[in-house]
Design a protein around this nucleic acid. Structure first.
Length: 508
RNA sequence: GGCGGGGUAGCUCAGUUGGUUAGAGCGCAGGACUCAUAAGCCUGAGGUCAGUGGUUCGAUCCCACUUCCCGCUACCA
């Protein structure tokens, strides 16, 4: 059995510059991608940009640029972000690429042929100045004139020809799908929301627009372009060379194992997406995880509040690994979390500098002064040494379960506990008092280094660059990195020399 | 309004399928040590587990009510 794993981020709409939410989704997905890789899986990690729609079309015009050239520029910003976040994505999909157009067009054709899409009229109260449709309860009648309650701008009844997807028809199938696939939607609290939404009744979904041109043309009617979700969601298939179902990528990786998304786009992924796929006769993905938002202090980040924390700025000031660590450790995964410079600094100092960084430093430095960085050939573990080292063996299966349940919190808690344990071990053994007993001295050093190696492997998906730096000093390269080696107690080569590393994280 | 989630130490959050002294990290106080980034280790202070009532031999965990916070209640993404 091939062990394949397909994980995605949302494709980002590049009308604004990357913010913390983009960084968060990408880092989380990268965490899982990296873990599954060292677990021995063949991983395909996809991210990309969603470049169609009126907003982009208009922004290009305002900038006096050709729309596609404009897209190239703004998409590049997100491509650059993958480097700045040290993402291990295998591909970067753009909805303006031919491969995606082919794939979306194919889905459309299937749905239309099956009678899942029909032409009708989209109508509603439209505000020209807001460029938005409002429902009956979002408008009010003042002096006989209808206007939007929220903006106060006048609305008019507009009807526009549009294609519709028969979403209503799939209500029961969706509910059945949810009940047969218990963990399709995580976290559970959001699953309830989705189910109650579906139970409350589904209306057919408008899937085309005539009012703008920047999109994938509807194959049978060039007056229309596909509208948003049918176009955007299909990216997850496009990157696997769909519609070529015999393609190796498609065969290996579909259905996707995990779509990482923000809670704000959960409905589209948990309702529309499986409905499209069921209707097209394609297997739906295995899981959709809707994570929370990253708040600044306890408030949503917004320009007017002046509390925006720009991920690129943070990285420049504090470094990437600290940001990655913070987002993974301090945010309770699935819930909203918050970030502030004060909290970030606090986290860097106590967890990364004092706890982990200093652990590496004290042990390696001790090894340098007392063993000239050389790993002794003769090591003799005491029962206590063995028992501490074998915690990883005992927890092996549990750690894998954490990952497969997306229980990041338990995963990181285990790491932090082991960091304390390693520091305590070194402290309790007090090798500086045992300099006359060379065998014991070397064994304590070796045990400590092994403890560092093990915990550093677990840290790799979180802080890959730092982790590799430490492992390299033990003679371990990224290509040799395997999760299963955490149960080995004699992995670091006896008789080898470790390399000195500098301060991993500076205190602030 | 309807549906759902939540209110646990100063702060951020775990947890309890009901059972002896309710947990972690950070912060705070004290102590012993010195290999280390004045880091690490030990000890301690600090909580009527939102409120009231009920079920029970026993409730932070179950039920009811009250109160506060948050999310969803469809076509911006």
């Amino acid at each position: 059995m091939a062990k394949n794993y397909y994980i995605t981020t949302p494709i980002y709409y590049p009308s604004a510059k990357p913010h913390m939410g983009h960084a968060y989704s990408s880092i989380i997905a990268d965490f899982f991608a990296r873990f599954k890789r060292i677990q021995g899986y063949n991983v395909f990690y996809l991210t990309g940009t969603d470049e169609h729609g009126q907003k982009i079309e208009r922004a290009a015009k305002e900038n006096n640029k050709d729309t596609l050239l404009f897209c190239n520029e703004i998409s590049q910003i997100f491509k650059d972000l993958t480097k700045k976040l040290n993402l291990s994505n295998n591909d970067f999909i753009r909805t303006t690429e031919d491969r995606h157009k082919k794939s979306a067009t194919n889905i459309w054709n299937i749905l239309e042929k099956k009678g899942e899409i029909y032409l009708s009229k989209y109508s509603g109260w439209y505000s020209v100045s807001d460029e938005a449709f409002y429902s009956e309860d979002e408008i009010e009648d003042i002096d006989g004139k209808k206007q939007s309650i929220s903006s106060g701008s006048p609305v008019e009844w507009v009807e526009e020809e549009s294609y519709f997807f028969k979403l209503s028809k799939w209500q029961e199938s969706l509910l059945k799908f949810y009940s047969e696939n218990e963990n399709f939607i995580l976290p559970i609290s959001r699953k309830n929301e989705v189910i109650s939404f579906v139970k409350s009744g589904l209306k057919d979904l408008s899937v085309s627009r005539k009012s703008f041109k920047w999109g994938i043309p509807v194959p049978s009617n060039s007056d229309h372009v596909m509208y948003v979700w049918l176009d955007a969601l299909t990216n997850y298939l496009s990157a696997l060379n769909y519609p070529n179902e015999n393609d190796k990528l498609y065969k290996d990786f579909w259905p996707a194992d995990l779509h990482i998304i923000g809670k704000d786009i959960l409905r589209f992924h948990a309702v529309y997406w499986p409905a499209f796929l069921l209707a097209a006769g394609i297997k739906p993905p295995k899981r959709v995880y809707g994570h929370g938002w990253i708040l600044s202090g306890d408030q949503k980040m917004s320009k007017s509040k002046g509390n925006i924390l720009d991920p690129l700025q943070i990285i420049q000031t504090y470094g990437l690994d600290p940001l990655r660590y913070y987002l993974i450790k301090e945010v309770s995964f699935g819930n909203d979390g918050n970030i502030s410079e004060e909290k970030l600094e606090n986290c860097i100092n106590s967890d990364l500098a004092n706890n982990y960084g200093n652990l590496c430093q004290r042990v390696i430095s001790f090894c340098e002064k007392n063993a000239n960085l050389k790993i002794s050939e003769s090591i003799n573990f005491t029962d206590n040494d063995k028992s501490i080292l074998s915690i990883y063996e005992k927890k092996f299966d549990e750690i894998l379960k954490f990952i497969d349940k997306q229980d990041i919190n338990s995963y990181i808690n285990f790491i932090v506990t082991q960091l304390f344990a390693a520091n305590k071990y070194f402290n309790d053994e007090a090798p500086w008092k045992k300099k006359s007993d060379e065998l014991r001295l070397n064994t304590i050093i070796y045990t400590s280094l092994e403890l560092i190696r093990k915990v550093t492997i677990l840290l790799y998906p979180i802080i890959p660059a730092t982790s590799l730096k430490v492992l390299k000093s033990f003679g371990i390269e990224e290509k040799d990195l395997k999760f299963e080696t955490i149960i080995d107690h004699n992995y670091i080569k006896k008789g080898s020399k470790i390399k000195k590393i500098g301060i991993l994280f500076k205190k602030i």
